[in-house]
Design a protein around this nucleic acid. Sequence first.
DNA 1: CCCTGATTCGC
DNA 2: GCGAATCAGG
Length: 182
Amino acid sequence: MSWTDERVDLLKKMWSEGQSASQIAKELGGVTRNAVIGKVHRLGLSNRAGAAPAPAPEKKSARAAPAEPAPSKPAAKPEEKVVEVTVQPRKPIVPAGQPLPPQPSANEISPEALATVREVEKSAKRISLMELTERTCKWPIGDPATDDFWFCGLAVQQGKPYCEAHVGVAFQPMSNRRDRRR
DNA sequence: CCCTGATTCGC
DNA sequence: GCGAATCAGG
């Protein structure tokens, strides 16, 4: 496969839409994500938004020995124009400490399912947010405002965001929540 | 282990 | 120009 105008267009489009290289590669077909990334760089659109200043003075140069001039004196930093990056006004997620409103999770679920969940939570992998993938159960456990918070992390059920047990409590037919005989 | 982008370098 | 191999990191 070669980079025809069409394919490049699609690449540009998807890349600017925030699609990942692998997704783009999958969509284009006939190329790997590496090919896509390579192309992206050659096209000079490595940074998706145009908002990336020019940070990265120099990272740990990936591999390969620099073998560069380096006369004798690193000559202290040239005046690196430090761009004041205005961070998006992040909204505080959780005030912390505040009693969280009851999550739409463990409230009106069948006792059996709830019991099962308890079980699962004991064998959960306790993965962190960054460990989440398409095939890890994303069921949150604990209080997000504290350290006592993690995700189930068990193998998800095909197509679902949760493991079998959690799918059970997450997707309950409306018809099944009537027995709140309180 | 899954995935992401970044970089290098032989072709 | 291309992209596999490799790296760095979530």
